[in-house]
Design a protein around this nucleic acid. Structure first.
Length: 287
DNA sequence: AAGAGGCCCTGATAGC
DNA sequence: TGCTATCAGGGCCTCT
């Protein structure tokens, strides 16, 4: 699923294409997403300009005039496609995430601008749209979420205060959006590998030095992933759709049974289910 | 009240 | 080939 870096990459490309564009039409084919698409969704958007494309954590926020906001979460399988209608009447498909061609199935929502349209496709329908009439309500929507790893608020004092007495394992904390928001299952494993910390280690047993590492590598992994264009995004410029022209440079994720990438470490990457989510880690260098 | 587990949903893949 | 079981990157709700 798209984690913070993927959503940020999507935000940037989206922003370039739909900034200051006016919504001409909205099509809702299936309103039964994770949450039902609100009744006023279409009228909320039509004739409005996109004045900014924002993001918090894994949420995209389309800023509209008059302090209105349209929130979009991609869930596990949500993808955004931009279809451009150029002068030659060719349809150029720009896929921002995960798919070589525009899927016909599961394209639940279309937001249509003058020469371009945004298509939301989501097989599992874990994603959702929500609308907010002012920034107060939007803020309230995010109130329960912890800071992003990239924010200054995500510092030693904050992490220590929350984690130092908790009995929950650190992997679950990295996935807990109330503690820190934006990290998902892939990057959680990657971050802990770089920290040399076992995913099963209870938070209260972590030392100050380890808290510092968690903060440092959380930032580093996410920033690096954004820089690389979202490492979980498949690069599907190849219309033939052949797999293999995208690379995952993961150190542990989906590397079960393979050698640890750390120099001189003889460890083997393990896969283990921790709270129903797959976790990958080196059995030797992560303590 | 913290933490574990179940559930929403479809599709891809593995195993028989 | 065709069935079934398992798993997939998230988040919210409930139960203990």
């Amino acid at each position: 699923m798209p984690e913070l870096p993927e959503v940020e990459v999507i935000r940037r490309s989206l922003s370039k294409k739909i900034y200051q564009k006016k919504v001409k039409k909205v099509i809702v084919r299936n309103k039964n997403l994770r949450f039902k698409i609100p009744r006023n969704f279409i009228s909320f958007l039509v004739n409005q300009k996109i004045i900014k494309v924002d993001r918090f954590s894994k949420y995209l926020i389309l800023n509209l005039p008059n302090d209105h906001y349209c929130l979009l979460h991609l869930g596990m399988s949500g993808t955004i496609h931009l279809i451009q209608n150029n002068k030659k009447n060719n349809i150029t498909n720009t896929s921002f995430y995960n798919s070589p061609i525009l899927p016909k199935k599961h394209s639940h929502v279309e937001i249509i601008f003058e020469k371009i349209k945004l298509v939301y496709n989501d097989p599992r329908r874990f994603g959702f749209f929500q609308v907010f009439n002012n920034s107060k309500l939007l803020k309230k929507r995010f109130a329960h979420l912890g800071p992003e790893p990239l924010q200054k608020k995500f510092n030693l004092k904050y992490v220590y205060t929350i984690l130092s007495k908790k009995d929950k394992n650190i992997k679950n904390f990295l996935l807990d959006q109330n503690f820190v928001s934006g990290i998902g299952n892939i990057y959680a494993s990657e971050i802990l590998f770089l920290c040399k910390i076992s995913p099963e280690k209870k938070a209260r047993f972590l030392k100050k030095k380890e808290f510092k590492k968690i903060i440092f590598y959380s930032k580093k992994v996410l920033l690096n992933a954004i820089k690389k264009g979202g490492s979980t995004i498949r690069n599907f410029k190849n219309i033939s759709g052949k797999i293999g022209d995208f690379q995952k440079n993961f150190k542990v994720y989906q590397r079960e049974g393979l050698n640890c990438k750390r120099i001189k470490c003889k460890g083997i990457i393990q896969k283990k289910f921790i709270s129903n989510r797959s976790s990958f880690f080196c059995n030797t260098c992560q303590k």
